[in-house]
Protein backbone atom coordinates (compact mmCIF):
# COMPACT_ATOMS: atom_id res chain seq x y z
CA UNK A 1 0.00 0.00 0.00
CA UNK A 2 2.94 2.30 0.64
CA UNK A 3 3.93 1.95 -2.99
CA UNK A 4 0.42 2.84 -4.11
CA UNK A 5 0.25 5.99 -2.04
CA UNK A 6 3.61 6.88 -3.51
CA UNK A 7 2.49 6.75 -7.15
CA UNK A 8 -0.26 9.25 -6.38
CA UNK A 9 2.10 11.41 -4.32
CA UNK A 10 4.80 11.41 -7.00
CA UNK A 11 2.29 12.43 -9.63
CA UNK A 12 0.82 15.20 -7.49
CA UNK A 13 4.35 16.43 -6.74
CA UNK A 14 5.22 16.37 -10.43
CA UNK A 15 2.12 18.33 -11.33
CA UNK A 16 2.86 20.96 -8.68
CA UNK A 17 6.44 21.08 -9.87
CA UNK A 18 5.31 21.81 -13.41
CA UNK A 19 2.96 24.60 -12.34
CA UNK A 20 5.68 26.14 -10.17
CA UNK A 21 8.25 25.67 -12.92
CA UNK A 22 6.03 27.38 -15.48
CA UNK A 23 5.45 30.36 -13.21
CA UNK A 24 9.16 30.68 -12.38
CA UNK A 25 10.11 30.35 -16.04
CA UNK A 26 7.58 33.01 -17.08
CA UNK A 27 8.72 35.43 -14.38
CA UNK A 28 12.38 34.92 -15.26
CA UNK A 29 11.67 35.50 -18.93
CA UNK A 30 9.56 38.56 -18.12
CA UNK A 31 12.40 40.22 -16.19
CA UNK A 32 15.17 38.96 -18.50
CA UNK A 33 15.61 42.28 -20.39
CA UNK A 34 16.11 44.04 -17.05
CA UNK A 35 18.78 41.72 -15.70
CA UNK A 36 21.22 42.23 -18.49
CA UNK A 37 20.06 39.72 -21.13
CA UNK A 38 19.76 40.92 -24.70
CA UNK A 39 16.13 40.74 -25.83
CA UNK A 40 17.19 39.57 -29.29
CA UNK A 41 19.18 36.72 -27.81
CA UNK A 42 16.32 35.61 -25.53
CA UNK A 43 13.84 35.90 -28.42
CA UNK A 44 16.03 33.62 -30.51
CA UNK A 45 16.07 31.16 -27.63
CA UNK A 46 12.29 31.38 -27.30
CA UNK A 47 11.70 30.71 -31.00
CA UNK A 48 13.88 27.62 -30.87
CA UNK A 49 12.41 26.58 -27.52
CA UNK A 50 8.94 26.69 -29.06
CA UNK A 51 10.19 24.74 -32.08
CA UNK A 52 11.75 22.10 -29.80
CA UNK A 53 8.64 21.88 -27.60
CA UNK A 54 6.52 21.29 -30.71
CA UNK A 55 8.95 18.64 -31.88
CA UNK A 56 8.94 17.03 -28.45
CA UNK A 57 5.16 16.78 -28.55
CA UNK A 58 5.59 14.43 -31.49
CA UNK A 59 8.73 12.56 -30.42
CA UNK A 60 8.45 12.52 -26.65
CA UNK A 61 4.72 12.03 -26.35
CA UNK A 62 3.74 10.54 -29.70
CA UNK A 63 6.83 8.34 -30.08
CA UNK A 64 7.36 9.51 -33.68
CA UNK A 65 10.80 10.65 -34.84
CA UNK A 66 10.46 13.11 -37.70
CA UNK A 67 13.66 14.06 -39.43
CA UNK A 68 12.13 16.75 -41.57
CA UNK A 69 10.75 19.25 -39.11
CA UNK A 70 12.76 22.09 -40.64
CA UNK A 71 10.17 22.21 -43.41
CA UNK A 72 7.50 23.40 -40.95
CA UNK A 73 9.75 25.99 -39.36
CA UNK A 74 10.92 27.25 -42.74
CA UNK A 75 7.62 27.18 -44.60
CA UNK A 76 5.92 29.34 -42.01
CA UNK A 77 8.93 31.66 -42.04
CA UNK A 78 8.72 32.19 -45.80
CA UNK A 79 4.96 32.67 -45.87
CA UNK A 80 5.02 35.07 -42.93
CA UNK A 81 7.92 37.05 -44.39
CA UNK A 82 6.28 37.18 -47.82
CA UNK A 83 2.84 38.20 -46.59
CA UNK A 84 4.28 40.80 -44.22
CA UNK A 85 6.62 42.30 -46.76
CA UNK A 86 5.04 41.85 -50.19
CA UNK A 87 1.36 41.67 -49.27
CA UNK A 88 1.65 44.12 -46.41
CA UNK A 89 -0.34 42.10 -43.89
CA UNK A 90 -0.59 43.03 -40.24
CA UNK A 91 2.13 41.01 -38.37
CA UNK A 92 -0.56 39.06 -36.50
CA UNK A 93 -2.16 38.02 -39.79
CA UNK A 94 1.21 37.26 -41.36
CA UNK A 95 2.08 34.99 -38.43
CA UNK A 96 -1.33 33.38 -38.76
CA UNK A 97 -0.83 32.83 -42.49
CA UNK A 98 2.59 31.25 -41.97
CA UNK A 99 1.33 29.00 -39.20
CA UNK A 100 -1.66 27.94 -41.29
CA UNK A 101 0.65 27.08 -44.20
CA UNK A 102 2.69 24.78 -41.98
CA UNK A 103 -0.49 23.22 -40.60
CA UNK A 104 -1.64 22.46 -44.15
CA UNK A 105 1.77 21.05 -45.02
CA UNK A 106 1.56 18.98 -41.82
CA UNK A 107 -1.73 17.45 -42.99
CA UNK A 108 -0.21 16.47 -46.34
CA UNK A 109 3.11 15.17 -45.03
CA UNK A 110 1.44 13.44 -42.09
CA UNK A 111 -1.03 11.79 -44.44
CA UNK A 112 1.84 10.39 -46.48
CA UNK A 113 4.12 9.38 -43.63
CA UNK A 114 2.05 8.38 -40.64
CA UNK A 115 1.52 4.75 -41.62
CA UNK A 116 5.26 4.13 -41.75
CA UNK A 117 6.98 2.88 -38.65
CA UNK A 118 10.29 3.81 -37.03
CA UNK A 119 13.15 4.48 -39.40
CA UNK A 120 10.86 4.53 -42.47
CA UNK A 121 8.88 7.34 -40.91
CA UNK A 122 12.09 9.30 -40.27
CA UNK A 123 13.27 8.64 -43.83
CA UNK A 124 10.08 9.70 -45.55
CA UNK A 125 9.89 12.94 -43.55
CA UNK A 126 13.52 13.64 -44.42
CA UNK A 127 12.90 12.95 -48.10
CA UNK A 128 9.91 15.30 -48.26
CA UNK A 129 11.85 17.99 -46.37
CA UNK A 130 14.66 17.74 -48.93
CA UNK A 131 12.13 18.20 -51.72
CA UNK A 132 10.78 21.27 -49.96
CA UNK A 133 14.32 22.62 -49.62
CA UNK A 134 14.90 22.40 -53.35
CA UNK A 135 11.48 23.87 -53.99
CA UNK A 136 12.32 26.92 -51.86
CA UNK A 137 15.76 27.15 -53.42
CA UNK A 138 14.18 27.42 -56.88
CA UNK A 139 11.10 29.54 -56.18
CA UNK A 140 11.62 33.21 -57.12
CA UNK A 141 9.65 34.56 -54.14
CA UNK A 142 12.18 33.20 -51.61
CA UNK A 143 15.10 34.94 -53.32
CA UNK A 144 17.20 31.79 -53.06
CA UNK A 145 20.46 32.21 -51.18
CA UNK A 146 19.60 35.78 -50.14
CA UNK A 147 16.30 34.94 -48.52
CA UNK A 148 13.49 37.40 -47.90
CA UNK A 149 15.25 40.27 -46.18
CA UNK A 150 14.13 43.43 -44.43
CA UNK A 151 10.77 42.05 -43.42
CA UNK A 152 8.88 44.84 -41.68
CA UNK A 153 7.91 44.10 -38.10
CA UNK A 154 4.98 46.46 -38.45
CA UNK A 155 2.28 47.27 -35.92
CA UNK A 156 0.59 44.38 -34.17
CA UNK A 157 -3.20 44.72 -34.64
CA UNK A 158 -2.32 48.07 -36.14
CA UNK A 159 -1.55 49.39 -32.66
CA UNK A 160 1.54 47.91 -31.00
CA UNK A 161 4.72 49.08 -32.68
CA UNK A 162 6.93 46.01 -32.93
CA UNK A 163 9.97 47.96 -34.00
CA UNK A 164 10.23 48.84 -30.34
CA UNK A 165 12.46 46.07 -28.89
CA UNK A 166 10.47 45.52 -25.72
CA UNK A 167 7.14 45.47 -27.52
CA UNK A 168 8.54 42.76 -29.80
CA UNK A 169 10.01 40.94 -26.82
CA UNK A 170 6.80 40.73 -24.81
CA UNK A 171 4.81 39.76 -27.88
CA UNK A 172 7.15 36.82 -28.40
CA UNK A 173 6.98 35.94 -24.71
CA UNK A 174 3.17 35.92 -24.68
CA UNK A 175 3.06 33.71 -27.78
CA UNK A 176 5.66 31.35 -26.33
CA UNK A 177 3.97 30.96 -22.95
CA UNK A 178 0.56 30.47 -24.57
CA UNK A 179 1.94 27.76 -26.85
CA UNK A 180 3.79 26.15 -23.97
CA UNK A 181 0.62 25.98 -21.89
CA UNK A 182 -1.29 24.63 -24.89
CA UNK A 183 1.27 21.84 -25.32
CA UNK A 184 0.95 20.96 -21.64
CA UNK A 185 -2.81 20.86 -22.07
CA UNK A 186 -2.57 18.62 -25.14
CA UNK A 187 -0.40 16.17 -23.23
CA UNK A 188 -2.90 16.13 -20.37
CA UNK A 189 -6.08 15.94 -22.42
CA UNK A 190 -8.32 13.00 -23.34
CA UNK A 191 -6.42 12.98 -26.64
CA UNK A 192 -3.06 13.01 -24.84
CA UNK A 193 -4.15 10.04 -22.78
CA UNK A 194 -4.93 7.99 -25.90
CA UNK A 195 -1.69 9.13 -27.54
CA UNK A 196 0.22 7.86 -24.52
CA UNK A 197 -1.61 4.53 -24.71
CA UNK A 198 -0.77 4.20 -28.41
CA UNK A 199 2.90 4.93 -27.74
CA UNK A 200 2.97 2.33 -24.98
CA UNK A 201 1.17 -0.46 -26.79
CA UNK A 202 -0.20 0.29 -30.23
CA UNK A 203 -1.79 -3.11 -30.99
CA UNK A 204 -3.64 -3.01 -27.68
CA UNK A 205 -4.91 0.50 -28.35
CA UNK A 206 -6.13 -0.65 -31.77
CA UNK A 207 -7.80 -3.69 -30.25
CA UNK A 208 -9.74 -1.33 -27.99
CA UNK A 209 -11.10 0.37 -31.10
CA UNK A 210 -8.77 3.34 -31.50
CA UNK A 211 -7.66 4.11 -35.05
CA UNK A 212 -4.04 4.70 -34.04
CA UNK A 213 -3.17 6.48 -37.28
CA UNK A 214 -5.78 9.20 -36.74
CA UNK A 215 -4.36 10.03 -33.33
CA UNK A 216 -0.80 10.02 -34.59
CA UNK A 217 -1.83 12.23 -37.50
CA UNK A 218 -3.42 14.77 -35.17
CA UNK A 219 -0.25 14.79 -33.05
CA UNK A 220 1.78 15.32 -36.21
CA UNK A 221 -0.38 18.20 -37.42
CA UNK A 222 -0.34 19.89 -34.00
CA UNK A 223 3.44 19.55 -33.92
CA UNK A 224 3.78 20.92 -37.45
CA UNK A 225 1.47 23.83 -36.67
CA UNK A 226 3.35 24.85 -33.53
CA UNK A 227 6.68 24.44 -35.32
CA UNK A 228 5.23 26.75 -37.94
CA UNK A 229 4.27 29.26 -35.27
CA UNK A 230 7.90 29.24 -34.11
CA UNK A 231 9.13 29.86 -37.65
CA UNK A 232 6.56 32.60 -38.27
CA UNK A 233 7.50 34.50 -35.12
CA UNK A 234 11.19 34.02 -35.90
CA UNK A 235 10.74 35.63 -39.32
CA UNK A 236 9.14 38.72 -37.77
CA UNK A 237 11.73 38.99 -34.98
CA UNK A 238 14.77 38.65 -37.26
CA UNK A 239 13.03 40.28 -40.22
CA UNK A 240 14.37 37.47 -42.34
CA UNK A 241 13.33 34.16 -43.89
CA UNK A 242 16.27 32.18 -45.21
CA UNK A 243 17.27 28.76 -46.49
CA UNK A 244 18.99 27.78 -43.22
CA UNK A 245 15.57 27.28 -41.66
CA UNK A 246 14.52 24.69 -44.25
CA UNK A 247 17.90 22.99 -44.42
CA UNK A 248 18.17 19.45 -43.08
CA UNK A 249 20.68 20.53 -40.45
CA UNK A 250 17.85 22.47 -38.81
CA UNK A 251 15.90 19.20 -38.52
CA UNK A 252 18.95 17.69 -36.83
CA UNK A 253 19.35 20.64 -34.53
CA UNK A 254 15.84 20.33 -33.14
CA UNK A 255 16.46 16.63 -32.44
CA UNK A 256 19.62 17.63 -30.58
CA UNK A 257 17.89 20.33 -28.54
CA UNK A 258 15.13 17.94 -27.54
CA UNK A 259 17.43 15.07 -26.61
CA UNK A 260 19.88 17.32 -24.79
CA UNK A 261 17.15 18.94 -22.71
CA UNK A 262 15.20 15.77 -22.12
CA UNK A 263 12.78 14.19 -24.54
CA UNK A 264 9.34 13.52 -23.10
CA UNK A 265 9.81 16.10 -20.35
CA UNK A 266 7.88 19.34 -20.52
CA UNK A 267 10.78 21.71 -19.77
CA UNK A 268 13.53 19.72 -21.45
CA UNK A 269 13.21 21.22 -24.95
CA UNK A 270 13.24 24.76 -23.50
CA UNK A 271 16.47 24.05 -21.62
CA UNK A 272 17.99 22.24 -24.60
CA UNK A 273 17.15 25.08 -26.97
CA UNK A 274 18.65 27.75 -24.72
CA UNK A 275 21.81 25.70 -24.13
CA UNK A 276 22.37 25.26 -27.87
CA UNK A 277 21.53 28.87 -28.73
CA UNK A 278 23.90 30.07 -25.99
CA UNK A 279 26.68 27.80 -27.21
CA UNK A 280 26.25 28.96 -30.78
CA UNK A 281 26.24 32.54 -29.60
CA UNK A 282 29.44 32.33 -27.57
CA UNK A 283 31.28 29.95 -29.85
CA UNK A 284 30.36 31.79 -33.04
CA UNK A 285 33.93 33.05 -33.33
CA UNK A 286 35.12 29.45 -33.61
CA UNK A 287 33.35 29.08 -36.95
CA UNK A 288 33.12 25.51 -38.15
CA UNK A 289 34.11 24.20 -34.73
CA UNK A 290 30.62 24.94 -33.43
CA UNK A 291 29.34 22.03 -35.47
CA UNK A 292 31.99 19.75 -34.04
CA UNK A 293 31.20 20.82 -30.49
CA UNK A 294 27.44 20.37 -30.87
CA UNK A 295 28.17 17.01 -32.49
CA UNK A 296 30.28 16.00 -29.50
CA UNK A 297 27.50 17.08 -27.14
CA UNK A 298 25.10 14.96 -29.12
CA UNK A 299 27.34 11.90 -28.77
CA UNK A 300 27.84 12.55 -25.06
CA UNK A 301 24.12 12.91 -24.62
CA UNK A 302 23.32 9.64 -26.33
CA UNK A 303 26.08 7.74 -24.52
CA UNK A 304 25.96 9.17 -21.01
CA UNK A 305 22.82 11.25 -20.40
CA UNK A 306 20.08 9.42 -22.16
CA UNK A 307 17.38 11.23 -20.27
CA UNK A 308 18.79 14.65 -21.11
CA UNK A 309 19.40 17.50 -18.66
CA UNK A 310 15.88 17.81 -17.29
CA UNK A 311 15.30 14.07 -17.42
CA UNK A 312 18.45 13.35 -15.42
CA UNK A 313 17.62 16.02 -12.84
CA UNK A 314 14.08 14.66 -12.46
CA UNK A 315 15.41 11.11 -12.03
CA UNK A 316 17.99 12.26 -9.50
CA UNK A 317 15.36 14.22 -7.64
CA UNK A 318 12.89 11.36 -7.36
CA UNK A 319 15.68 9.00 -6.24
CA UNK A 320 16.79 11.37 -3.48
CA UNK A 321 13.47 12.45 -2.07
CA UNK A 322 12.80 9.00 -0.59
Amino acid sequence: MAAIAEVAAVRAARRNGIVTGTVVMTVLLAIAPFIGLYPVFVMKGLCFALFACAFNLLLGFGGLLSFGHSMFLGTAGYITAFTAKEVGLDPALAILAGTAASAALGVIVGGLAIRRQGIYFAMITLAIAQMMYFFYLQMPFTHGEDGIQAVPRGRLFGVIDLTHPLAMYYTVLVIFVAAFVLIYRVIHSPFGQVLKAIRENEPRAISLGYDADRYKLLAFVLSATLSGLAGAVKAIVFQLAALTDVHWTMSGEVVLMTLLGGMGTIFGPVVGAFVIVTLENYLASLGEWVTVITGAIFVLCVLAFRRGIVGEIAAWWSAHRR
Binding site: V186, S189, P190, F191, G192, V194, G209, Y210, Y215, L218
Partner: peptide, 13 residues
Protein backbone atom coordinates in the same frame (compact mmCIF):
# COMPACT_ATOMS: atom_id res chain seq x y z
CA UNK B 1 -13.32 4.91 -26.20
CA UNK B 2 -16.99 4.20 -25.49
CA UNK B 3 -17.40 7.75 -24.19
CA UNK B 4 -15.99 9.17 -27.44
CA UNK B 5 -14.61 12.68 -28.03
CA UNK B 6 -11.08 11.34 -27.63
CA UNK B 7 -9.63 13.71 -30.21
CA UNK B 8 -10.37 16.64 -27.86
CA UNK B 9 -6.86 17.92 -27.37
CA UNK B 10 -7.90 21.23 -25.85
CA UNK B 11 -9.85 19.78 -22.93
CA UNK B 12 -8.36 18.83 -19.57
CA UNK B 13 -8.05 15.15 -18.80
Amino acid sequence: RKRGRSLDFWRSE
